[in-house]
Simulated assay, not measured.
Amino acid sequence: MPIAQMKTNYKFSSPAVRTNFLDETASELSEILRKPLPAIMIMLDECPMYMNSSEDTEFFAEFRYILPPEYSDNKSAFLKELADRMLSLIQKHTHADPYRVYMQFTEMTREGAWRYTG
């Protein structure tokens, strides 16, 4: 299961605006990762963050993913696309300075990424 775990000190103007951000993030990840939307998990924590003596908008995101097969020979191109699209989306919704947005990417194996319970 692809997962995006995000933390920010950005204050969304309403729950609907926050939900719109989450919906758009899930849709983007679904498209990039070639996974159905119900398989995408998004977590968002709004919390105090402080960097360089400032509480200006900051954003940290960790993305756990399974590399799509078509990128098996070019992982760097996949990571560039994922990073560029996620940064663009984060900036669209939060107007965060790109130097205050940090992203971490963790590739998972298919065997370790999903366990059915049933």
Rank of each mutant, 00 (worst) to 15 (best):
S54I: 05
D45M: 06
E31C: 06
R18H: 11
L22I: 03
Y102C: 00
T106Q: 05
R64Y: 07
R100G: 05
A4Q: 06
P69N: 15
L82S: 07
Y10Q: 00
E81N: 12
S14K: 09
A96N: 08
K80V: 10
D73G: 09
R34H: 15
D84I: 00
E46M: 05
E55T: 13
L89Y: 00
E58Y: 06
K7A: 09
V17A: 13
I66H: 10
M43E: 09
M51T: 10
E81D: 13
Y65V: 00
Y102V: 02
A16E: 15
R115A: 14
T19K: 14
P69C: 12
W114R: 11
M41F: 08
D23T: 14
R115P: 04
T94M: 02
S88V: 04
M43Y: 11
D23Q: 12
M103D: 05
A4K: 01
F21S: 04
W114E: 15
E70L: 11
Y99G: 06
I32A: 02
E111N: 08
W114P: 11
L29M: 07
Y116P: 09
I42Y: 01
N20G: 04
A4S: 10
M86D: 00
I3F: 04
F21V: 01
S13M: 11
M41P: 02
F21M: 01
R18Y: 01
T117Q: 10
A39L: 10
S30M: 09
T57S: 02
I40Y: 13
T19S: 15
Y99K: 11
A83S: 14
Q5A: 05
Y102P: 00
L82G: 01
L37C: 10
I66V: 15
T19M: 12
L67R: 07
R34N: 13
T19L: 15
D97R: 02
T57P: 03
M41A: 14
L87Q: 04
K11C: 11
W114C: 14
K92Y: 05
D23W: 10
R85K: 15
E107M: 05
K75L: 13
G118D: 15
Q5Y: 02
S30K: 04
N20M: 05
E24I: 04
L37Q: 09
N20F: 00
P36N: 07
D97T: 00
L22S: 02
D73Y: 12
M108F: 07
P48D: 15
S72N: 06
P68E: 10
M6R: 04
S13D: 15
A83T: 05
I42F: 01
I90T: 01
P2Q: 03
G112S: 12
T94E: 02
S13Y: 08
V17R: 08
K75I: 12
I90K: 02
P36E: 08
T94Q: 01
T57D: 01
E31G: 06
G112V: 07
N20V: 06
F63Y: 01
Y50P: 04
M108R: 03
K75D: 12
F78G: 10
L33M: 13
M43H: 12
T109A: 09
L29H: 02
F59Q: 03
F12S: 07
P15Y: 10
F105D: 04
S53T: 14
Y10L: 06
S54Y: 02
L37R: 14
K75H: 12
E31A: 08
E58K: 11
I32Q: 02
S14A: 13
D73H: 15
V101I: 11
R18I: 08
E107C: 03
E62L: 06
